[in-house]
């Protein structure tokens, strides 16, 4: 996968309002803003992302994804 493909997957599946992905094809680093994080703690936000990408993680297409930021749109705008 390319960083752009990962970015598209996250944006589509999490209705992300912002998404930055860096990576080398094996390990990716993502910063995500999504309204679906509203009212959730950090652990629940990470679970939401991993669950949304479960099929491509399980299949090995997406080998490793570090979540650097999981913010609500308001938190993203304020940073």
């Amino acid at each position: 996968m390319t960083p752009e493909q990962v970015q598209t997957l996250i944006t589509d599946r999490l209705s992300a309002t912002a998404c930055e992905v860096n990576g080398d094809g094996a390990h990716f680093y993502a910063r995500i803003a999504s309204p679906r994080f509203d009212g959730l703690g950090l652990l629940a936000r990470h679970r939401l992302v991993k669950d949304a990408l479960k099929d491509v993680i399980d299949s090995g297409e997406l080998h490793a994804l570090s979540l650097e930021k999981t913010l609500t749109p308001a938190e993203w705008a304020a940073r």
């Binding site: 950090l42 652990l43 990470h46 570090s66 979540l67 650097e68 930021k69």
Partner: peptide
């Protein structure tokens, strides 16, 4: 359970 390495870092 607190989290894994990303959550610890954050």
């Amino acid at each position: 359970f607190v989290g894994g390495s990303d959550i610890m870092k954050e």
